[in-house]
Design a protein around this nucleic acid. Structure first.
Ligand SMILES: [Mn+2]
Ligand SMILES: [Mn+2]
Ligand SMILES: [Zn+2]
Ligand SMILES: [Zn+2]
Lengths: 138, 138
DNA sequence: AATTTAACTTATAATGATTCTAAACTAGTG
DNA sequence: CACTAGTTTAGAATCATTATAAGTTAAATT
């Protein structure tokens, strides 16, 4: 996703009507160079600044869940206080900075192949992800 | 921790009074051969079966948080639906079985050393943990 | 272009897990 | 036994999230 017309097409192609609320949210989430990690609360505050007319909190929840369901967002659980959403929907690794509660992508190319010499009978692996918790020095 | 007397001593030594509720919960959590992964709801249901007199839900919350604070339990976030607690408080890896929402320890010896060729300036690493999501075959 | 329909947005209410409160109880101290 | 600080508890409060249902809008149909 990159510009408004593309957002409109993208939404329509996945069976979601391109409402002005959804396009507004798309611009905010996907018009970015880098991955964006956010909580519902972050998004709500951002939209209050950015957006002309207020988007109701119910719509923000609806939209984020609709986007997650369509595969445009991924939910990441790091701690019980906050739930994060991620515009990078691939399987990937993260740093979590405990000093400021910030999630940061850790590209697969920086993590040497992970070899696991144990398997669970009758189960297949869906994903293997690393979480590196960090904090400020001293 | 292993038997009642030990629980009493252990609790006392960490500044927690060995009440019958706490010892009851200790027995349930720590008198086990293997690590135990549970939600507050799991624990509540288990205590209803096991325990003679009912332990109030507030006490279960209080106790789990007290044990976490003292370092006898670790909280694990896997998804936004449930928060798990873990009697294995070391840094370690997990399988998460999406077919039945079960958390399973993945011992460090089964995971080849994880090498990360990226660091964040001014930040130090607190933990590196792998989460392997699995599900039933076919 | 007007009509019709289903999808969507929204304010507001409901829900439910967790936390708080404050009164009764208990472990530990002497 | 008497005292104190810590603990348990039922019930109330909180708050993030979800549900409701009435109004609005996109888009298909005529
Ligand atoms: Mn959610
Ligand atoms: Mn908690
Ligand atoms: Zn990410
Ligand atoms: Zn574990």
């Amino acid at each position: 996703m990159s510009n408004n017309v593309t957002f409109t097409e993208k939404l329509r192609s996945s069976g979601l009507r391109p409402t002005k609320q959804r396009i507004e949210i798309c611009k905010l989430l996907f018009n970015r160079a880098n991955t964006f990690h956010f909580t519902i609360n972050d998004l709500n505050k951002l939209l209050n600044k950015t957006s002309e007319k207020k988007i109701s909190l119910a719509t923000i929840y609806n939209t984020v869940h609709a986007f997650k369901k369509k595969g445009y967002l991924k939910e990441i659980s790091i701690n019980s206080e906050r739930s994060y959403f991620d515009t990078n929907v691939t399987n990937h690794h993260h740093f979590f900075d405990e000093s400021n509660n910030e999630l940061i992508d850790l590209d697969n190319k920086y993590v040497e192949k992970i070899t696991i010499s144990k398997s669970l009978p009758g189960k297949k692996i869906k994903s293997v992800e690393v979480l590196v918790k960090v904090a400020n020095n001293n």
